[in-house]
Amino acid sequence: MKTIQKMYEHLNWANQRILETLQSIEDKNQEVNRLFSHILLAEKIWITRLRGLDSSRLPIWSEVDIEVCAELVMQNKESLTTFLTNLSNTDLDKLITYTNSKGKEFKNSVQDILTHVALHGQYHRGQINSRLRSDGFEPVNIDFITFVR
């Protein structure tokens, strides 16, 4: 649980750093906003699934404006913090059954879902940084080691 807690502290920190950078850029890159929206919408979907609720109708690739992203960053942080606070080590092996956006049913453990969400966001934040650099902006340092320092 300590490792998972730390991963999510890092996830929240990294999302906040990306958000602040995107809020400060006047010249908006549509693909960057789409990727950041995707990260946040995917987090919301997985939170919904972890709660045992239907997520099949939630959008996953909808571009939302930066104000909505800011709200999602806050909501997801609160929801994930609450979920993790109430989670025990034995809960990590619990299987969650969910249906994806294509109507296919899957079962995964809480631990695997939590690991996926953390890695998924990091992957797309890397894509965001690559696009920022190609647009002439300094990439956001979201390295885990920077976070723990």
Rank of each mutant, 00 (worst) to 15 (best):
V68F: 08
V68W: 00
C69K: 04
A70G: 14
A70S: 15
E71R: 11
L72S: 03
L72I: 07
V73H: 03
V73I: 13
M74V: 13
Q75V: 13
Q75R: 11
Q75D: 12
N76A: 10
K77M: 07
K77Y: 05
E78F: 07
E78T: 14
S79E: 15
S79Q: 14
S79V: 05
T82V: 12
T82E: 02
F83R: 05
F83D: 05
L84A: 09
L84N: 09
L84C: 10
L84P: 07
T85W: 01
T85A: 09
L87I: 12
N89P: 02
N89Y: 10
T90A: 12
D91C: 04
D91N: 14
L92G: 04
L92D: 04
D93N: 08
D93L: 07
K94T: 14
K94L: 08
L95H: 09
I96E: 01
I96D: 01
T97Q: 06
T97P: 00
Y98G: 03
T99F: 03
N100P: 00
S101Q: 12
S101T: 15
S101V: 11
S101P: 01
K102A: 12
K102M: 06
G103I: 10
G103F: 06
K104Y: 09
E105G: 01
E105M: 12
F106C: 03
F106D: 03
K107E: 13
K107W: 03
S109W: 04
S109G: 12
V110C: 02
V110K: 01
V110F: 01
Q111V: 14
D112H: 10
I113L: 07
I113V: 12
I113M: 08
L114M: 08
V117G: 07
V117K: 07
V117D: 05
V117S: 07
A118P: 02
A118S: 14
L119F: 06
L119C: 06
L119A: 12
G121C: 14
G121S: 15
Q122E: 13
Y123E: 11
Y123F: 15
Y123L: 14
H124A: 12
H124E: 13
G126E: 08
G126C: 05
G126Q: 08
G126N: 05
Q127E: 13
Q127R: 07
I128S: 04
I128Y: 04
I128P: 03
N129S: 11
S130G: 14
S130Q: 14
S130E: 13
R131L: 15
L132D: 11
R133E: 13
R133K: 15
R133Q: 14
S134A: 13
D135N: 15
D135F: 07
G136Y: 04
G136E: 02
G136S: 05
G136M: 06
G136T: 04
F137R: 11
E138W: 03
E138A: 15
V140A: 08
N141R: 08
N141A: 13
I142D: 03
I142H: 00
D143W: 05
D143N: 13
D143V: 10
D143C: 04
F144K: 00
F144E: 03
F144Y: 15
F144C: 02
I145Q: 04
I145G: 01
T146E: 02
F147V: 10
F147K: 02
F147A: 06
